[in-house]
Design a protein around this nucleic acid. Sequence first.
DNA 1: TTCATTTTATTAATATGTTAATGAATGTCT
DNA 2: AGACATTCATTAACATATTAATAAAATGAA
Lengths: 140, 140
Amino acid sequence: MRKFNDSLPLRLLKAREAAMAFFRPLLQEIPLTEQQWRVIRALNEFEELESKQLAELCCILSPSLTGIINRLEQQGYIKRRKSSEDQRRILISLTEKAKDMFARMSPLLEERYQEMTERFSSRDMKKLEELLNKLCDVKP
Amino acid sequence: MRKFNDSLPLRLLKAREAAMAFFRPLLQEIPLTEQQWRVIRALNEFEELESKQLAELCCILSPSLTGIINRLEQQGYIKRRKSSEDQRRILISLTEKAKDMFARMSPLLEERYQEMTERFSSRDMKKLEELLNKLCDVKP
DNA sequence: TTCATTTTATTAATATGTTAATGAATGTCT
DNA sequence: AGACATTCATTAACATATTAATAAAATGAA
């Protein structure tokens, strides 16, 4: 069998840890978890989203998202309203507080992203992204 | 700022999910979690490991590993003993039951790995692994 | 040797991941 | 309209992730 360290899932996990190491310190200062930031980032781009869309975009399962949304609401970062057509659906959007925080944080995080890209090599980063996208399309 | 879906950490997360989709169904039949299998796989290769080494190898933090080890012991898959030189250290190894199970499962998982590699392209897989390894070495 | 420091595993507290089950709202079909 | 299935969000139950704190053992310097 393949050696333990040659496992692709393990490599993907380690690579992700290495990448997140650039951003975690900044998020911890606020403080926000990685998942909370992912949700806020998605909402900043798409304005208002249904819970289900948000879960799909952020790669977070619905039950986890329920908790994350609750905590973000407690912290005053998001607001929710019910859809008028379909009473099951919840529509979620950022508060002003969240938008301000995002505007303050995103340049700092972008800076780190550049730093990571440079240290890794801009060309390799592009190639890596291509391959990851391709891998996402491979299904059993 | 970069579009939401262009984030490298998110891509790594999605790619990992795509890869794990090949293996999850098999593990669920036993049943074993992904982390439990990672621990068993490491122990199969290294015979006996200290808790700390195991955590390092499997990319699992010590507090999580404590629970995983406890549950695996409950299920009869691992045994633990104290180091004679250093009374703090715990040495962990597989039981016969675990070795048998591993011998039965690993060919099936290896089959899936081949299937994944073929669908993805063997050359691209190699390139991807290279890039992931390189990314792991990039530090803030 | 003694005291302070460091290392190791664990516990505590909280957040998230994962699958199954639930309840409410909607859709479908007759 | 009424019975049935489907969809969506949530809850439940358990496993893992994460940071801080702790207790015990080992180490190192005075």
